[in-house]
Design a protein around this nucleic acid. Structure first.
Lengths: 118, 118
DNA sequence: TCGGCCGTGTGATATTATAACATAACGAGA
DNA sequence: TCTCGTTATGTTATAATATCACACGGCCGA
């Protein structure tokens, strides 16, 4: 874990909600003016690789992993009002996969309204 | 259903696999040289609105809906080798949503290898 | 000490998507 | 018929997201 990557992770944790790559980049620039897109994308790739971050596919945004202990995919519940994300690990095996289909990676994102925002 | 939209749908159906918006645009250009990005994105938005197409979020690509009879979300099984997509409707309600969370829309995409490609 | 790998710096560019405004097509009602 | 409102489309530009390609430097093991 290098300082750069640690910094990106810290920014994600601090945000506590999905952050766009270029927002992250802007925040990095306050400490490191030389930050450029590859800087942030590389760090994000690394963090996702080791399971410390997830991409929220339907938002093109990134979050710190709230569990930090495995690299399997997570199931995300995303409030469209406040942006809050709840994360669940241990997605059940898909029940109705086509015959013989072997799943590597699942993207599961539920968009709705959380109890605080109703 | 206008000719433009019908054409976009036809191209999606013909492709039979996820297609990128700009690929679609290139194909549209063979019949309509004036096609531009908004042309294709508007048609896609419409088709998704009425349930005739889906966006594959993790690929930034679009497919014709194989069921064509409802506008609820679908569960997709996507072969990383051949690109084939199987679609399932009637996703079960999420089992482990946070208390009081009301889901509007679910994105469920499983990436793996289909039986033909093993 | 050298060679290789890994991480980072840097500039450019590719890809995906939308904004903003203009024009056309069409039907409902005066 | 006229004209108004609504919906669809045309057009230019630009925003937002992501990657490529190449250079450099540090670290570590042979």
């Amino acid at each position: 874990m290098t300082p750069l990557r640690r910094n990106v992770l810290a920014l994600l944790v601090e945000a506590g909600e999905p952050v766009k790559a270029y927002d992250l980049l802007d925040r990095m620039k306050s400490s490191d003016k030389s930050a450029k897109p590859p800087t942030v994308y590389r760090s994000l790739d690394f963090l996702m690789e080791v399971g410390l971050a997830h991409k929220v596919e339907a938002l093109n945004a990134y979050i710190a992993c709230a569990h930090c202990h495995d690299k399997s995919g997570a199931e995300l519940y995303i409030c469209k009002v406040c942006g809050d994300v709840s994360e669940r690990h241990g997605i059940p095996e898909p029940q109705n996969a086509p015959d013989g289909f072997v799943t590597d990676r699942s993207v599961v994102e539920h968009y709705g309204i959380c109890s605080n925002c109703r």
